[in-house]
Each structure stands twice: as C-alpha cells, then as structure tokens.
Nucleic acid binder design. Sequence first.
RNA 1: GCGCCCGUAGCUCAGCUGGAUAGAGCAUCGGACUUCGAAUCCGAGUGCCGGGGGUUCGAAUCCCUCCGGGCGCACCA
Length: 552
Amino acid sequence: MRAHTTFKATLGRVLADLGLALPEKAVIEPPKDPTFGDLATNAALLLAGAAKSNPRALAADVAARLTAADSRLAKAEVAGPGFINVTFTPAFWQETVCEVLAAGERYGASSLGAGQKVQVEYVSANPTGPLHIGHGRGAAIGDSLTRILRFAGYTVETEYYINDAGRQMRMLGTSIHARYRELLGAPAIFPEDGYKGEYIKDLAQEIIDARGRALLDLPEAEAVDACYDYGMNKILDGIKEDLVNFRVEHQVWFSEKSLVASGAVQRSFDNLKARGLAFEQDGALWFRTTDFGDDKDRVLRKSSGELTYFASDIAYHDDKYRRGFDLVIDIWGADHHGYIPRMRAGIAALGKAPEQFDVILVQLVNLLRGGAPVAMSTRAGEFETLHDVISEVGTDSARFMFLSRKSDSKLDFDLELVKQKSMDNPVYYVQYAYARISSVFAKAQEAGLACPTEAAPALLSQLDTPADIDLLRALERFPDAVEAAARTHSPHHVSYYLRELAGLLHRYYTLNPVLAAPNAELTSARLLLLSGVATTLANGLALLGVSAPRRM
RNA sequence: GCGCCCGUAGCUCAGCUGGAUAGAGCAUCGGACUUCGAAUCCGAGUGCCGGGGGUUCGAAUCCCUCCGGGCGCACCA
C-alpha cells in the first residue's frame, strides 16, 4: 500500500513535469515476476499517443526522471513494449517495520469507508431448530466481513432478522403441540410437513415438566400458541448461545412480527400504491417488480389476506434505510439466489441506488467425515448442528475453514481433516507462525535480550537480504489485502494473505537464526522484524475472528 | 424451457474492475532436527485456465455460443 501510494505520487509529479497526467486507467501493480521489480506501470503505453512519442521512448524518459525525483526508488527500467518497472531501496522496505510497530493493532486499518454506515444482516435462520453447519459458514463470513469493514473505517451494525410472523413458525407451534399431546397419551395428529427432529419432542417434554397437563385444557389455538412461544424462545436462546460460542455477535435482533405490528408493512403498501407500483388483482395485492427488471410481478398480500415473505422484506429493507444505512449487505444461502431480482426491484422502488444493496450468497457446505458424506436433512430432523461441529473441531479451525474459500463456491468440510493438527489444516500453519515468534520472544527475554523499543533506521538497515526484503514486502501488502477484502466483501482475501505471510515467516525462521545471529545488532534487527510479523499475523487473525495463540 | 452460480495441476482451490513465462496448499518422490518449537523447511514433475468464436496491441479475466455440474423459477418460507 505504502509502495503503491509512494510510487503513484512520484510518477504523477514526473508526468506533470512532462505536461502529462496519469490516466485513470493506468495500472500500478506488482509485476508477475518479482525479479522485474517491486511495482510496474503501463502508464507509458497509455500516454504515448498524448506525448506524441512511442511507448518505449516515453518510458525511458519517465524512468530516468523517476529515480532522479525520488531517492526511495533504487531502479526504474523499461521492459517489453513500454512497461516501467521500479525497485525500491532496502531502506524504503525497512521503514515498513516502523509503520507496523507504530500502528500496532491498528496496522492495516484505514479510512477507506470513513463516514459510511453499513448494515450487515446475516444468519437470520428461522428459529424453528438449531443452527446447522451451513448457518455456521454464513455466520463466519458475516462476522469476519463486519470486522474487516470496521477495520477499513466503515461504521457497521450487525443484525439478525427473526422470521417470527409466518407459517413456518405456526408449524413449529403445531409440531410441538402434537408431540406434547402424544407424550401425554392424548389423541394427536402430527402435521404432515411438521418438524420431525428429536428436539421437538424435547421441547414438548420441557413444557410438560413446567406445566404438566395444563395445555390439554386450553383451546387448541391457545395451546399451540403457548407451545410456539416456548419453543421459539428456547430455540432462539440456543441459537444465541451457539453464536456466542462461535464468536459471532449480532447487535440487533429484529422481529418480523414487530414490523407488521408497527404498521410498517401497511405503510410500505400505501407508499407503493400511491406511486402506482402496487395493484389489486384476483383478490391479491401485487407489486409491479417488472418495472424494475424482475421477470414477473410479485404478490405482497395473498387473496387469503396473509402477507407474503416478500411483503415484510420490502418493509424491512425500507426500515433499514430509514435507520440511515448507506449500504445494506444481506448474507443469504445460495438457494435463495432466485430471490435477488425481486429484492433488487424492491430496493429500486425504495429509491435506493443499486450499489447501496449487496447480497452475499453463501454456497452449501458439504459435510464429510474422513471423505464420506454426512447426511444432512433438516426435514428428516437428522443434521449436524453447528454446536456439535464446534465442540468437535473447535471455533478457530471451523472459522478458518469457512473463511478460506470464496463464499460463492461450495465448501467441503471434512470433520476429520479440520480436526487434524496437520499441514492439511491451514489454521495451524498460520497460528504456528505466531506461536513460533512468541516463543522466540520468550527465549529472548530469558536470555536478557530485549526487543528494541525503537526501530532505528541504522538497526533496520541490517535487514537487507532477499529473505528480509521478501518478508518486509509481505508486511507492506497487508493493508492492500484488507482493502481488497473490504472492497469486494470477501474475507477470504485475508486468509489467503495470512497463509502467504506465515509461509514466508516459516522459511525465514528456518534460515535466519535470531538469538544466535552473528552479532547483537542483527539479533535486534531480526527481533524487530519478527515483532512486525507477529503484529500483522495477529491483526489478520483478528479480522477472521481466529485466535493468535502464543503457545499451541 | 428461463434465470443465477460454478468449470483453472492427480485432489481442494486462489487469481476474474484485461497486462509480461497462469499460482498456492495437499497428494507423489527425494532431502534437512547435537542449534530460537520438524504442527516446520529445502528440492523435483505437473496445466488445450471445459470447447469454439468475438472484442483488444494484449483475455483465465470482457461479450456470444455450446458442453458439463449445482441451484432456483409459488398467492412457500
């Protein structure tokens, strides 16, 4: 990041001297082959026309001026059709250590999103049963994205939407009620598409323990309501507990029921009708989503008088924007992708720009054990709960695994593999790098070798081997990884970065003794470098919500 | 039938706002612990980037088309 900024500024000055301006489309990035240099730009290729010169000649002129204009640039060369490759001085890279140590746990943070208020809504599973492993993936992604966005300067609020108003929840009540009656030997009809899991029976038994046969004397509707109330709250408590154990925090728990009760749904109907976007037909109320790119109009209120899910979703998102969010991010299971066009239509009808709404689709998790698939079906009531998975493999491993893939691709989650403390399991690779450094510092302390409190340039100038520079360059790139993750709403960029940094550290560690370095100055310099790596690893792991253990 | 996502090394996947010779981990094979933690490191091979067209000085990346896989297409949630 610092290299990019520095070079861009210098290049801008040099071009200005030539009466040219750096084009928007100009690319400044590390060359494919690192031996070419630290950064490369195609600016001369793009500007040759304007400069009435050929790309190579212009590039040569610019290159010569670059090194003269900035002493931090050691080398500027022309390559190929007119690329300019530049190499920074070792001193420039060594300064990175100062940057890291000065910023500490804020190293990598930025003001990219300053002044922007973002809401991330995620998990939002219907409280009809415990969270399963697929919810876990969404939870990890939503939570990590939140941490990343905050680190990048956004103001983020997290939310869980509780679908407590629909048919599903009534079904929960009827299912529990039926089990309740069965357990008491009363005649009962279990609903055909009811929830069949064992936990439903457990809930029924708990109600019996608390209230005995009392519900048998109530009118059925009341009894079902009582079952529903008890069941939902109990399940919701379980969900909250699971999320806390998974280090996932939701600041706001938003009830769909409250939305209906507050009249917000009716208000959004009125609003749409007033603007000619909603109409009555066949006894139902329709939203003209085709005006906004959907392939058919959608029902808001059924002819039965019931609201559709979509109706409350419109009102819900309206409410979100009224709360002042500039950007609303929803994290959904990939099986809901067909819902996006109508939701986008809804957002457009609310008068919001497309970039103010993003949906992150999270693909299914394929749960395996030793290579063999583990059956998962909520309907049949047989599934691996998030709770079970976490207690088997641990929060760190599970989170890292979930965050090490693009959310959009399917994920194989092999319990045996994720549990293994082996090279197959990247979380240990990264954590081990941190633990190793911690161990060196512990040893240093025992030996009375303190890490210098100040990163003096004279000391740092010892860090001049290719291995040193590689590591320094990696540290310098951390802010870029964070920014990429924030911009693209993709936490996996951070985990990829961490694996790379950990790899460089392990390599460095093997070949460059710290405490047994040839001289004391070198020991000090390497301690400083390792300290910078440790800080960066810890910051990155924190963004994933994974711990950075001093010992393993 | 229509729509969305995916197709990159034997396996699991990065790279996708176009840039130079396409990367990583695992697996395979061969090395490195009297020395700061071997949960590590070093070395070796591996690719019609699913196929075909197009745009471009330049395409894994953008457009079209076909094939293969997944998922959606309700007055369900």
